[in-house]
Design a protein around this nucleic acid. Structure first.
Length: 456
RNA sequence: GGCGACGUGGCCGAGUGGUUUAGGCAACGGCCUGCAAAGCCGUGUACAUGAGUUCGAUUCUCAUCGUCGCCUCCA
């Protein structure tokens, strides 16, 4: 059974399932106000790999991942560009899914939008006020963090300790707040709603929900109390996840059973890439310039909790590694199709993945299995089919789609035949010319003793 | 100031108290090939520094230096 590091207990522990055979996961999705960056890509790919693995083990996975389609940054951009806010959110969301499809992210089972849950958020905030966990000020409704017993569980720091330093930062809504860490649940509108600056009615005044409420309402609505796993990037640990949890606790509800956080994407100097620093390379560029699988490959080779560097060298290395896997996959597609995967290899794969999603070890196993299968194939050993089948299983569980034997058009086939004829006739000048011609047409040409094989 | 992570061979990146100490990329040698490609075989004596614990530490402890993250923008 899968063991995962749990941020709440700071230990690797078994992912306990609320219902046998079923896993319920909530993943904090994007705020749709700009193109997805590399960090978004890492988070979705890490959880995509997790999900595929869980499914491979036979579990029924329900993955809820929200789209935040109302937020300050969306409004700021709408105002700045004098556009309707929905214009921005719809376009950005479309771009988001396009990018996610390109990296082969398996779509979540549910993708709720914040704007679909405004009524529920208003209702929840009402309950928090009624139970005196929240209060109304001049500019909004705030959550009282001191009213929540174990606030700071995910931050692993008491509220007082957090206050004691780092005091340079601007405290949002400071004037009316009872405690600096109190966070906004509902922001009052400063004027009438416009095309760019929307607001919704509430018993306390027109406005819009704060940052941390949607995930509580949606996760509890779609997954129910005590769902299995809550995921997201390290940066969401505090305050976002802490604040989600605070609301649930204040409501008297059991929240996530296990908290998983992935590490950052860092730049060449080891610094976190984030939007506010402006040093982001965007995911769209990466998948346009390189094989979209390369990013997944790089992530597989490092642990999900470690920071990962995305550099030219890294991506190039991954592209080369993929080329080897593609060559292998094309070579063994037919062989593997009819064979039972090697049980020992798959057992090792499970062992590695169950240990806090040890994809570096599992990836090493994949390469090792490919090497063994190739060697067995060269030696004409019967072991090759089972090994190849196991390698294919691992790759597909990783979400890596490898090359399959290509459809070869008549023209290419004729050239390949001519190439073989020339080689048979020892007319190597012609053979070389034909090979170059095929390569120019985009084929990867492997001329072997048994004849020429082509793939794209 | 508080809390936390990390410093591994040319690069990336796992891991471990000691015998055969991942994997990828690059490099070099070999096999195969008409030559290549693909593939296979082999080579590299790495673990920031200092001290300590230990029969033995890259792995544990402490200190030092360095890098980075969180402490209400952020995946």
């Amino acid at each position: 059974m899968l063991h995962l590091y749990d941020t709440a207990t700071r230990s690797v522990r078994e992912l306990a399932l609320r219902e046998p055979g079923k896993v319920s996961i909530y993943l904090c999705g994007p705020t749709v106000y700009g193109p997805p960056h590399l960090g978004h890509g890492r988070a979705t790919l890490v959880y995509d790999i997790l999900r595929r693995y869980l499914e491979w083990t036979g579990l029924d996975v329900r993955l809820v991942s929200n789209i935040t389609d109302i937020e300050d940054k969306i409004i700021e951009r709408a105002l700045r560009e004098d556009r309707p806010w929905q214009d921005i959110t719809t376009k950005c969301e479309a771009v988001w899914w396009e990018a996610m499809d390109a990296v082969n992210f398996e779509r979540p089972t549910d993708t709720p939008h914040a704007t679909e849950y405004v009524d529920e958020m208003v209702e929840m905030i009402g309950e928090l006020i009624a139970s005196e966990h929240a209060y109304v000020t001049d500019d909004g409704v705030y959550m009282s963090v001191e009213s929540v017993d174990d606030y700071g569980l995910l931050a692993h720091q008491s509220v007082d300790d957090m206050r004691s330093g780092g005091g340079d930062r601007e405290v949002v809504g400071a004037a009316g707040k009872r405690h600096p860490a109190d966070f906004v649940l509902w922001k009052f509108a400063t004027g009438p709603a416009t095309e760019s600056d929307p607001s919704w009615p509430s018993p306390w005044g027109a406005g819009r929900p704060g940052w941390h409420s949607e995930c509580v309402v949606m996760s509890l609505d779609l997954l129910g109390e005590g769902f299995d796993l809550h995921c997201g990037g390290q940066d969401l640990r505090f305050p976002h996840h802490e604040n989600e949890r605070a609301q649930a606790v204040a409501l008297g509800k059991t929240f996530a059973n296990h908290w998983m956080h992935n590490g950052f994407v860092v730049d060449a100097e080891g610094e976190k890439m984030s939007k506010s620093l402006g040093n982001v390379s965007n995911l769209l560029d990466l998948i346009e310039l390189y094989d979209p699988r390369a990013y997944r490959m790089v992530l597989l080779q490092s642990h999900y909790r470690s920071p990962v560097k995305i550099t030219q060298d890294n991506i190039d290395g991954a592209v080369k590694a993929l080329a080897g896997l593609d060559a292998f996959a094309a070579r063994t597609a037919d062989l593997a199709a009819g064979a039972a995967p090697d049980a020992g290899v798959l057992a090792d794969f499970g062992l590695a993945m169950d240990d806090d999603l040890d994809t570096p070890k599992a990836t090493a196993l994949l390469f090792d299995t490919v090497r063994r299968a190739n060697a067995a194939l060269d030696a004409g050993s019967g072991e090759s089919a089972r090994l190849a089948a196991a390698a294919h299983v691992i790759a597909s569980t990783f979400g890596l789609e490898l090359a399959v034997a290509s459809e070869i058009d008549g023209e290419a086939l004729a050239l390949a035949q001519a190439l073989d004829d020339a080689r048979t006739a020892k007319d190597f000048a012609t053979a070389d010319a034909l090979r170059v011609e095929l390569q120019a047409a985009g084929w990867t040409v492997e001329t072997t003793r048994d004849g020429t094989s082509l793939r794209r």
